[in-house]
Amino acid sequence: MPKRTKLGVSAVKHLAWLTRIDLTDKEAKEISKQLTKILNYFSKIDEVDTSGVEPLYHPLEIGKVSRSDEPTPFPADEILKIVPSRKGRYVKAPRIA
């Protein structure tokens, strides 16, 4: 069982990097406290015996859904209008370092 009592500032900073959300040190400290408290509450689920139980990822059984392989019109020009910054039909983005 992983230890789940504390989610420290460095762990929060690592999560912030993974999720691409820039956090100041002050924010990371505050969030560390809050998330630790929430995680401790979450560990309540340990009390339930789930041996032999399958996980349920979806509430209802829904069969395979497919459609015929025919292209449908796609309003690319309309959609491009909502892009904040673009060059022609390309979205402008910073360089990937």
């Binding site: 689920i45 340990d46 339930v48 789930t50 139980v53 399958e54 996980p55 349920l56 990822y57």
Partner: peptide, 10 residues
């Protein structure tokens, strides 16, 4: 674990 509890609940 949470998804298993979901199954028990259902």
């Amino acid at each position: 674990k949470a998804q298993k509890i979901r199954n028990i609940l259902k």
